[in-house]
């Protein structure tokens, strides 16, 4: 069993993610009507779990010592292909998103809003990628909180080095960052509301075990045939 992806596989996986993010961005923009949704280019990581955890700290939406609130959702991409999604939120994100959704702050607790947003972000992004790859709607568990206001690096260390959520030695991880910003075209209207500029910062990381790389490669092969025609099918010797 090869625990690696070749360059073609990586390119196609990256492209699949990019397409899914385009769709996700459009859907999120519809949902957060007057906000700009900024989605990062998805990053793919592959390797020993501890190393992936360290790689995830660089170039992330958060600095190492930033406080984040974290949720996890388990999923099944297809039979025998389990995965984990880890969603981190920056400080103040709960209040900001509650405000944007028009929730009465006394009515809704922060953890509830964040759980709701975690499920929504996971569904549109990771759900989109998995749907394209595996040709079926993935099933996600309800989001459960794994940490409240812990530092980002400690959170990653607990998950990827101490493996409190999954036991896998080698993982394939996909990272996407989000920001919500006010639409700059609305800026003149916002002058009376300086407090409107808040911070919503979030990051979604999906994790598969490398034991499932054959299924991922098979899915990518199927996708390649669909996109480019049967001549591009991997040669079977």
């Amino acid at each position: 069993m090869t625990a690696s992806l070749d360059d073609d596989d990586r390119d196609l996986l990256q492209e699949t993610c990019n397409v899914a993010m385009g769709l996700a961005g459009a859907a999120l923009a519809r949902f957060f009507a007057d906000a700009f949704v900024k989605l990062s280019v998805p990053h793919v990581f592959l390797g020993p779990s501890g190393d992936v955890g360290k790689l995830l700290t660089s170039g992330a939406a958060f600095a190492e010592k930033d406080e984040v609130s974290t949720f996890r959702q388990r999923f099944m991409a297809q039979v025998g292909v389990p995965g984990e999604v880890i969603v981190c939120f920056g400080a103040g994100s709960g209040a900001e998103v509650a405000r944007r959704l028009g929730h009465d702050e006394t009515d809704v607790v922060e953890s509830e809003v964040l759980a709701e947003i975690a499920s929504l972000l996971t569904g549109v992004t990771i759900g989109g990628v998995l749907r394209q790859l595996f040709r079926r709607d993935p099933t996600f568990s309800r989001p459960s909180p794994v940490g409240k206001r812990n530092s980002y690096d400690a959170t990653l260390d607990a998950i990827f080095s101490q493996r409190v959520l999954f036991p896998w030695d080698h993982v394939l991880a996909l990272r996407i960052a989000f920001r919500l910003e006010d639409d700059p075209r609305l800026a003149p209207l916002m002058q009376d509301h300086p407090k409107r500029v808040g911070t919503f910062q979030s990051q979604v990381v999906a994790v598969l075990r490398t034991g499932n790389l054959p299924q991922v490669k098979e899915a990518l092969g199927r996708l390649r045939v669909e996109l480019l025609g049967p001549s591009n099918a991997p040669s079977q010797l």
Binding site: E112, S119, L120, G123, V124, G127, F140
Partner: peptide, 13 residues
């Protein structure tokens, strides 16, 4: 609205 526009699941606990 989230469920319909984003076609994702929502939960209450």
């Amino acid at each position: 609205r989230a469920v319909r526009t984003l076609r994702t699941a929502a939960f209450t606990s």
